[in-house]
Nucleic acid binder design. Structure first.
Length: 428
RNA sequence: GUGAGUGUAGCUCAAUUGGUUAGAGCACUGGACUGUGGCUCCAGGGGUUGAGGGUUCAAGUCCCUUCACUCACCCCA
């Protein structure tokens, strides 16, 4: 093939797509139980929306966004969305959603785009399922989101995940902590790795979760975020932890858990996979972003949310490939042009009555048609050849029992429909 | 953006120190059974050995370039 997909963009082929459907179905069920409503937002937005919300100097903005000039006279810069929160926040403010009802629980799913080097669990077009809650400042909603995710894992049969939580403070207390942390790290500057030296300037909290042992050693002695939280932030975090007590597995407080995007405050969390994901092992992550809506020109309402990576979740599920139980297939085997035309019309009638039906388009031996029926997993095969056409009777073969019965053409439709209904009752 | 690894049939893999016409299993198609599936047996189709160049009497094999993929770093869901 000369025309191939572009790097980091992948096809989801039949066989794998069932896993995605399972994830999406489960997510929709769980969201419904928590009274979330779906929102659908554009894939393309003004570039400014993302630079204002994610932070000008984040890697996502600086080097990972697909940004290009529109064809209008002003050549407006547009970007393929690298994440979902900014767009949802924009829609919430623009649609004046807070006027009618300030508290909104929204979810979305769809493709996101970041031009990174692909690796396991990371593509340039990847898919997220996300949730955003507006107008709730209380810690109960933070906990509710985490319980929702836990329910989703349970619904999907995902095991071995670990929840890490932290509080990174608010606009009042974080600057103080940041200053204390920077002061501490400055004292160890020579011992830090080159990456951390850069982090110190750009996002000092990121030094805390450096993977290098040398840096991790230094960081153990660093000032603790928890001791720098203001009274309100500490109360909020303690309440969240208290509400999560019954969560299995119990969350791990990780004071070194930072966030890459600028808009987060207070509660942050990451849900990590135990095995099967390689180094990109965060399945879902999120946190609180109380000032974001207002900073984008919306009303002063609080926000909390998360996003989960569908590809990563699919990697965790693909091992136990329990495909959804599709309706049993009825296969129509025909021989001769007359029978072909007759079965073609029959197939259409049966499909309109809800049956799953298939048949060949070109003449093949009955043997090969039977082989195909078997391979396709047909529950029953209808056989019509020249003999049946002259007799006005068709053969129905039950593939499991190998029993065949003869049915008048006049009764074929109803017989097949009731056969299917009986099969549904047995399996359902 | 940085580093490492891997490219042979649709898939998983062979091919001796460089040596004839690049093989096998699975899958696919057909037949054994002129109108009946799973098992078995037989046969068949399918390859620019990722691409381009070089060395050599001779390259899947050695060298160079390039492309693709994979993993890790960075970053992040």
């Amino acid at each position: 093939m000369k025309l191939t997909r572009i790097k980091g963009f992948s096809d989801v082929l039949p066989g794998e797509v069932e896993t995605w459907q399972r994830i999406e179905d489960a997510a929709e069920r769980v969201f419904a139980g928590y009274n979330f409503k779906e929102i659908r937002i554009p894939v393309l937005e003004k570039a400014e929306l993302f630079s204002r919300s994610l932070g000008e100097s984040t890697d996502v903005i600086e080097k990972e966004m697909y940004t290009f000039a529109d064809r209008d006279a002003k050549a407006t810069l547009l970007s393929l969305r690298p994440e979902g929160t900014a767009g949802v926040v924009r829609a919430y403010g623009e649609g004046q959603l807070h006027q009618a009802e300030p508290v909104r629980k929204l979810y979305y799913l769809g493709p996101m785009f970041r031009r990174e080097r692909p690796q396991k669990g990371r593509l340039r077009q990847f898919h997220q399922i996300g949730a955003e809650v507006f107008g709730r400042t209380d810690p109960f909603i933070d906990a509710e989101l985490l319980l929702l995710l836990r329910d989703l894992w349970e619904e999907l049969g995902v095991a071995g995940t670990v929840l890490e939580v932290n509080s990174i403070g608010c606009a009042q207390c974080r600057p103080g902590y940041r200053a204390a942390l920077v002061a501490f790290l400055e004292g160890h500057r020579e011992e830090l790795c080159a990456d951390c030296d850069r982090r110190l300037e750009r996002n000092p909290l990121r030094v805390l979760d450096c993977k290098r042992e040398s840096c991790a050693g230094i960081v153990t002695a660093a000032p603790s975020i928890r001791s720098h939280l203001c009274a309100e932030c500490r109360d909020h975090f303690d309440t969240v932890l208290g509400l999560l007590k019954e969560l299995r597995p119990e969350p791990v407080v990780n004071e070194r858990l930072a966030r890459g995007l600028d808009y987060y405050c207070r509660t942050t969390f990451e849900w990590k996979a135990g095995e099967g994901l390689g180094s990109q092992n965060t399945v879902a992550a999120g946190g609180r972003y109380d000032g974001l809506v207002q900073s984008l020109g919306g009303p002063p309402v609080a926000g909390v949310g998360f996003a989960l990576g569908v590809e990563r979740l699919a990697l965790l599920l693909s091992t136990d490939e329990a495909g959804g139980p599709a309706a049993p297939l009825l296969y129509l085997a025909w021989m001769g042009e007359e029978a072909q035309r007759w079965t073609f019309a029959l197939a259409h009638r049966l499909r309109r009555r809800g049956l799953r039906v298939d048949l060949e388009g070109e003449s093949r031996s009955l043997k090969s048609q039977m082989r195909r029926a078997d391979k396709l997993g047909a529950g029953a095969v209808l056989i019509v050849g020249p003999d049946e056409m002259t007799n006005g009777k068709a053969l129905i073969r039950d593939m499991a029992t190998r029993e065949q019965t003869e049915v008048d053409f006049a009764d074929v439709d109803n017989t097949l429909v009731s056969l299917r209904e009986r099969a549904d009752q047995v399996s359902g």
